[in-house]
């Protein structure tokens, strides 16, 4: 279990993490989702005791990371696929890590086998592809057979086979009752892997809920309506408390009313409608919706950029 309490990190004038509090529970995969620069990696480095929080605290299984007697046996982390000396072989890297905790050589070979690194284990880690680097990072995280796993963007750079492998691995580990905390900026990846989602934007927690709630919570009864009397219908719907957007001249997007209610209202008032579509938000849309005000780097569309 990972517990963050008012965790804050300020670098000079920039607040990377602004007082986040959350709990990551054992036995499930918790996704840590946010756009680039949202503070995910900083939060994870603070969990691992690498960055000192400006204020607040974070504990793993009740203790700060550095207070654990055998930290690698408690928490395994992939913070950065390149947290390796580029001139050292993968095998020697793992051997040196294992040596700090008296982890036997047999376990080093075991994690090399598990992560499919056998063929390249004796090669310099600096020559690894991003995907191989990720596998090495995951191998290092698994060395101590830890109860808690923290993986920062583990599928970044993996091929489709590797993505499926990571997904199965984290689901398997969580199934064994371990705590798995997984970050990504890809909503689609989270939708397939995580049970619980913590969404972060600009250093603040925006949502912290089971993944199901996040999908349905945002997609609540939004309905697209096309009509040739948009003004009349808009007044009618507004009178019933709905919020209405008008993306196109004859199209309304209605939030807060069911499709059936809208149809009944139109029928009563003799308004012709020629489309009535309930809109269910995908997780991707839900994510965009949640973070649209909290993205640090907005991309300009081509038209805007041209001006």
């Amino acid at each position: 279990m990972i517990e963050a309490n008012g965790l804050t990190k300020i670098y000079g004038a920039k607040t990377a993490v602004a007082g986040v509090s959350f709990t990551v529970r054992a036995g499930q995969v918790t996704g840590f989702l946010g756009p680039n620069g949202a503070g995910k990696s900083t939060t994870m480095r603070m969990i691992m005791g690498l960055d000192r929080p400006t204020s607040g605290s974070v504990t793993v299984n009740g203790l700060r990371y550095a207070q654990h007697k055998a930290p690698l046996r408690e928490v395994g982390a992939l913070l950065d696929a390149k947290a390796v000396h580029t001139s050292r072989s993968a095998y020697n890297h793992l051997l040196a890590m294992a040596a700090t905790h008296g982890i036997p050589k047999a376990r080093v070979h075991e994690v090399i086998g598990m992560t499919g690194l056998d063929a390249v284990a004796r090669k310099k880690a600096g020559g690894f592809s991003l995907g191989m680097g990720q596998r090495l990072g995951i191998a290092a995280a698994l060395l101590g057979d830890p109860q808690t796993l923290i993986l920062d963007e583990p599928v970044n750079g993996l091929d489709p086979e590797g993505v499926v492998w990571v997904r199965n691995l984290v689901r398997y580990l969580a199934g064994q009752g371990r705590t798995v905390f997984l970050s990504s900026h890809l909503m689609s990846e989270m939708a397939q892997t995580a049970d619980h989602l913590i969404v972060i934007g600009r250093g603040r927690v925006i949502a912290d809920a089971p993944i199901r709630d996040i999908i349905t919570g945002s997609g609540q009864s939004r309905v697209r309506v096309r009509t040739d009397q948009p003004d009349t219908l808009r007044q009618l719907l507004a009178a019933r408390g709905a919020s209405i957007e008008v993306p196109e001249p004859e199209m309304l997007e209605v939030t807060g009313l069911q499709a059936k209610t809208i149809a009944a209202l139109a029928l009563e008032n003799q308004v012709l409608i020629y489309e009535l579509t309930p809109l269910v938000a995908s997780l991707e849309e839900a994510y965009m919706e949640l973070t649209k005000d909290d993205v640090e780097y907005h991309s300009l569309s081509a038209a805007e950029a041209g001006n």
Binding site: A70, H101, Y172
Partner: peptide
């Protein structure tokens, strides 16, 4: 058909029976 199924490797954690007898960094 994935060659790196995690399950078998984890099913026999033989080296980690005595977790308490193997403390951390000295």
């Amino acid at each position: 058909t994935s060659p790196h199924e995690p399950a078998p490797s984890f099913s026999a954690p033989v080296h980690f029976g005595g977790r308490r007898s193997q403390p951390g960094p000295t």
